[in-house]
Design a binder for these strands. Structure first.
Length: 663
RNA sequence: GCCCCCGUAGCUCAGUUGGAUAGAGCAUCGGUCUUCUAAACCGAGGGUCGCAGGUUCGAAUCCUGCCGGGGGUGCCA
């Protein structure tokens, strides 16, 4: 049972006696923010009073009069300006908690109207190694897939891999000019990555060389304007003076921006120029930018040689990606990359054109949407299609072939405009019943509050990041287990090598995922090793530890959880505030999951799991299980331990995080 | 130029879409192990919610303006 929904269902008829539109007021029933105000509160009497032009407290009285919650709650209290405070009866809580014991879904009812939901996430480019930027999409996406599926939807996870873009032209160019076949035979992906990096570096060098003069020119101009503005006397008029100051600041920041840009170009250039190997290569390949692009174009045009190379390289690249997914424990139902949609692009543009949506502008085919200055370019001047085209073709495919009712795109926030245009175009294209959502997220920052990079300025590879997490976790596991002592104070480690390695993996990978998920996805967040693997605080470890402690109780008491569930004795008895608080939180799991899903926010779920683990820890200290002599109370506490363990493990599993019974 | 996002405790972040005295974690300080796992528990201090107006019974939340920071922006994805 969803407790909050149940209360709302009780309020609905009561409110209907006072207003024709009760729904908005029903939504004002919520868990209390403060235990002193009971377990739940209804805040609808004040606004309803305003609408009815009656004193709010009088309205609250009327609502309470019409309300039937006698079986669940104590007499509702009216407080302050008209808050209705509800306190659940212990007997009712006991009964409901006991019901969970035999409920595999822990009280979560499947959604009334299941949909087919496509979740598009991760989407790395092949050839470029996955980096920290892919972490959020992959972790958040995988969590949403599991949560939606558990809620009862038909979910199709799809990895929309970038396997058809410009990076392949670079690799082909690199292969044709710089390959080392011997190395390729040994380590194909390593060699391809090297080729990509090399060509990319050389391209950047030439691009920098081309760009430099114009930046210099713009910088000189900006500096000149700034000097001019500085020489002017500030105007007497107050608002004009303000405008003058603002103008100065803007010019100043423009100069700074261009200076920084120029510095970085110069740095890029000199890095190559001082390199004895790279510089001659750069000199020998002056047209590398254009030629790589041509290799891409040839591939797209069906050139046999390039197509054969693509077919040869792709499986190797996919295998490398799979390694990271294996490490993360992430699975996809489909991995339909961009190349899959290649045959559908021409007809997509033709259809848009036919329907009058796409028009020619500056030689390109564009869709212009009202309220948007930027065009949505579906075919470039040179005839090539863009990712806008691919995304549109993908929508059509997902609706027609996969029967999608809803599509979620777990993609970083900077692409917000692209998705606005995409969704707008799709709607005008005729996909009006389709629910399209950009599940956007912020950037992972380094300790300097800039996007997370290595000291050398490279993006951080995901594979090494995960390895590092496991390595650090292993160190903590070792320290922790090595410091254990027996009753005589002698060292008494409990884990063998295999167990330690397994725990380190679960804790390390879990820590990295949890650190990501527990932030609001919309915010940027600062990446910190120390925090994600901390022995204290709001971490995966803390929740995993609560689970392990519960398992420990069953080991110590020599009780099998399943046989306990089959023979729950007199059920759940709430004899202390700790037990009551624990039972209430267990019963709130369904509403928390629903809340997390309503806005696609895994952090709602992490918060509820952390809170539950916290409440369990207090219970653990205060309500000893094994030493409890009253057999009924002991059984009740075992039931609470088992339920807590199941909710924690289920919740973490929905987030893609594993648990261990001992750590 | 236009568009989007952010500013909450020393630090990192929540804040259930307008609710009661703004919350966590870390850090700091003080307590708790002859142990159902101390990777824990209990307690304390710490705030002009960037600033100024407005909307109303009530604003961190909505509106306007300002200050500060980030991002996107016609042919990369």
């Amino acid at each position: 049972m969803n407790l909050l929904e149940e209360l709302k269902n009780r309020f609905r008829p009561a409110l209907a006696t006072l207003t024709d539109a009760p729904e908005a007021f029903v939504e004002m029933v919520r868990p209390s923010g403060d235990v002193r105000h009971g377990d739940y509160q209804a805040n609808c009497a004040m606004p309803l009073g305003g609408q009815l032009k009656q004193p709010p407290r009088q309205v609250a009285e009327a609502i309470v009069q019409a309300l039937d919650v006698n079986d669940m709650c104590h007499e509702p209290e009216i407080a302050g300006p008209g808050f209705i405070n509800l306190r659940l009866k212990d007997e009712w809580l006991q009964e409901q908690t006991a019901r969970l014991v035999s409920d595999e879904r822990l009280g979560v009812e499947p959604v009334a109207e299941p949909q087919t939901v496509v979740v598009d996430f991760s989407a790395p480019n092949v050839a470029k190694p996955m980096h920290v930027g892919h972490l959020r999409s992959t972790v958040i996406g995988a969590a949403l897939v599991r949560m939606l599926r558990f809620a009862g939807h038909k979910v199709i996870s799809d990895n929309h891999i970038g396997d058809w873009g410009t990076q392949f032209g670079m690799i082909i160019y690199g292969w044709n000019n710089f390959r080392d076949e011997e190395v390729y035979e040994r380590d194909p992906v390593g060699e391809l990555a090297r080729l990509y990096r090399l060509v990319n570096q050389l391209c950047d060098y030439h691009a920098a060389t081309t760009e430099q003069p114009s930046v210099e020119e713009r910088l000189n101009e900006a500096e000149r304007l700034l000097e001019e503005a500085k020489d002017q006397d500030p105007p007497e008029d107050k608002s004009a003076a303000k405008r003058h100051k603002k103008e100065l600041k803007k010019l100043q920041s423009r100069v700074e921006e261009l200076t920084a840009r120029l510095d970085s170009l110069n740095k890029q250039k000199s890095q190559i120029e001082q390199d004895e190997i790279l510089h001659p290569l750069a000199e020998a390949h002056p047209d590398i930018v254009r030629l790589s692009r041509e290799e891409t174009a040839k591939l797209h045009a069906g050139d046999e040689t390039n197509l054969a190379l693509w077919q040869r390289f792709l499986p190797e690249c996919l295998a490398a990606l799979q390694k990271v997914y294996d490490q993360l424990g992430t699975e996809f139902d489909l991995s339909l990359g961009e190349s899959h949609y290649q045959p559908m692009l021409a007809s997509t543009v033709a259809d848009l054109e036919e329907k009058g949506l796409a028009v020619e502008s500056d030689g390109a085919m564009c869709v212009f949407l009202e309220g948007n200055e930027a065009p949505f370019i579906v075919r470039k001047r040179d005839g090539a299609f863009t990712y806008a085209t691919t995304d549109l073709a993908t929508i059509r495919y997902r609706v027609e072939e996969l029967k999608a009712d809803r599509i979620l795109y777990v993609v970083d926030a900077r692409q917000g405009e692209h998705f606005r245009l995409l969704f707008g175009t799709a709607a005008r294209w005729g996909f009006t019943d389709l629910d399209l959502q950009h599940i956007s997220f912020g950037t992972v920052l380094g300790p300097d509050n800039r996007p997370f990079k290595t000291r050398a300025g490279d993006t951080v590879g995901l594979e090494s990041l995960l390895e590092e997490a496991v390595r650090r976790a292993r160190k903590i596991v070792n320290e922790n287990d090595d410091s254990r002592t027996d009753e005589a104070g002698q060292p008494a480690p409990e884990m063998d090598e295999t167990t330690r390695a397994d725990v380190a993996r679960v804790v390390g990978i879990g820590g990295i995922k949890y650190a990501d998920l527990h932030h609001n996805r919309e915010s940027d967040y600062v990446f910190s090793w120390d925090k994600m693997l901390a022995r204290t605080g709001d971490t995966a470890t803390y929740i995993q530890y609560s689970y392990a402690r519960s398992s420990g109780i069953f080991r110590q008491c020599e009780v099998d959880p399943q046989s306990l569930r089959d023979n729950p004795g007199k059920g759940v008895i709430l004899s202390t505030p700790e037990e009551r608080a624990l039972a209430l939180e267990l019963l709130q799991f369904p509403e928390q999951l629903a809340a997390a899903l309503a806005d696609y926010r895994p952090n709602v779920l992490t918060a509820c799991l952390f809170s539950l683990a916290n409440t369990f820890s207090s219970f653990y200290e205060k309500c000893h299980v094994r030493r409890e002599e009253d057999i009924d109370l002991r059984t009740s506490r075992l039931l609470l331990c088992d339920l807590t363990a199941r909710v924690l493990a289920t919740g973490l599993d929905l987030l893609g995080i594993r648990t261990v019974s001992q750590m």
